[in-house]
Design a protein around this nucleic acid. Structure first.
Lengths: 224, 224
DNA sequence: CTACCTTATGGTACTCAGTACCATTGTGAT
DNA sequence: ATCACAATGGTACTGAGTACCATAAGGTAG
């Protein structure tokens, strides 16, 4: 019965996409989808928890494959693992092509679907985060840094994917490489202070008066 | 009638929080909330579009104030504006204290509310993004960089806020300063190997305008 | 072949969020 | 007093999601 189940599921997905694009998401009821797929309403909700979920059919499996890829990583190759895990998602969407573009059209126009997509992306972020967290230690400052990095990976991926979905690029994988390179470079350790030729001062303050701060600033600058 | 409207709204918010914490979000119906607040069901949906929205009562106004703060920014003080705009949100939550913690408890346990919160955060990200985009030019590579930066600002804010909500820190504003400093430093231009004696100063301040401060700063630097 | 078990499925009935519409009340201005 | 207007409450409806039960299909052990 595996074949029947898969085929039912596929039919429901196809029916949903067609109806959503024709009548719009809100104007389409679950009954409509089920009827067009030739199944009962109950069957729909067994396959998809919500009406929105039918738009992201293999989201869970994708997240799972990312998690597996990360789990299989050597600590020394952590950055490679992150990149390759993210690429996994990208190539999946590239393979879907038409379906991915249809989904993009829908999520662009339907707030409910957009919201769903965003919380889906958050799952990727969480997945990367837990990996990056354990990879980095937990010295002070790193928890935030890990979060920033996890965000950056997901954002970079989405950025490239979105450009491809819009038709703004025909070389998404190459773009992905450069985007990920930018991310990695962003988090690469700064050139050490041992190099005396340069000085960077980052000063963030609110309450204290400027005259209060200037001596400190001057002192720091003189060190460099 | 302004007083009555506000008071109705406040009562509904209070009633909702109480009921959600007692019975849980799903077990509480909108009728329950309306009844406890002493209003009709219709009144509830006039004040809040969805049952989830009552948990984030001043979200829209907060986003608006962020947008206004950013709109009032001088290009030269863009980083200051971003920091201060984010701080606006932080201090709002700090002032709410108990309510913010109750909200945190709810969003931590109720997936629907968590999802709502996330798409709310996305609105902040969008707001910062459009500002940062126009601030940076559109040379190749900057669109992604702008996205990364907008994400980083929101994430840094959330990171600090979350730690305060958990009770992990008692100095959230100071933590916010260092977190934002980390973000700014992350995106600070790399020191090119070309210029041997280079100095970068990033100064972020709240009260006075940066243009006000710059001459003084310049004078000090030349002295040092 | 039969009894049995599992699995996918369909149907029915229910709760409740959200919408549309209409009636009422209170308040201020003229 | 009357008119205008904003806020409110009530009623009825659609549709998502849940719970429960009944049935059919297929496989397996006896």
């Amino acid at each position: 019965m595996e074949t029947t189940r898969t085929s039912s599921r596929e039919r429901m997905i196809r029916a949903a996409y067609e109806l959503f694009e024709q009548r719009g998401f809100e104007k389409t009821t679950v009954d409509d989808i089920a009827a067009r797929a030739g199944v009962g309403r109950t069957t729909f909700f067994r396959a998809f928890a919500t009406k929105e979920d039918v738009i992201f059919p293999d989201h869970d499996s994708l997240v799972a494959s990312v998690r597996e890829r990360l789990a299989a990583a050597t600590p020394s190759a952590a950055l490679v693992a992150v990149t390759e895990a993210a690429r996994l998602v990208l190539v999946h969407y590239l393979a879907e092509s038409d379906l991915a573009r249809a989904r993009y059209r829908l999520t662009s126009n339907v707030p409910a679907l957009r919201a769903r997509e965003i919380s889906g992306q958050r799952q990727y972020q969480r997945t990367f985060l837990t990996f990056i967290r354990t990879w980095m230690g937990d010295e002070p400052g790193t928890p935030l840094r890990a979060e920033l990095m996890a965000d950056a990976v997901v954002t970079a991926h989405n950025h490239v994917l979105r450009q491809w979905l819009r038709g703004s690029t025909t070389t998404p994988e190459a773009d992905f490489d450069t985007a990920m390179a930018a991310v990695v470079e962003l988090f690469a350790p700064r050139s050490p202070a041992s190099d005396a030729s340069e000085t960077q001062v980052v000063l963030l303050r609110t309450q204290r008066d400027l005259d209060d701060v200037l001596p400190e600033l001057k002192r720091v600058l003189e060190q460099g």
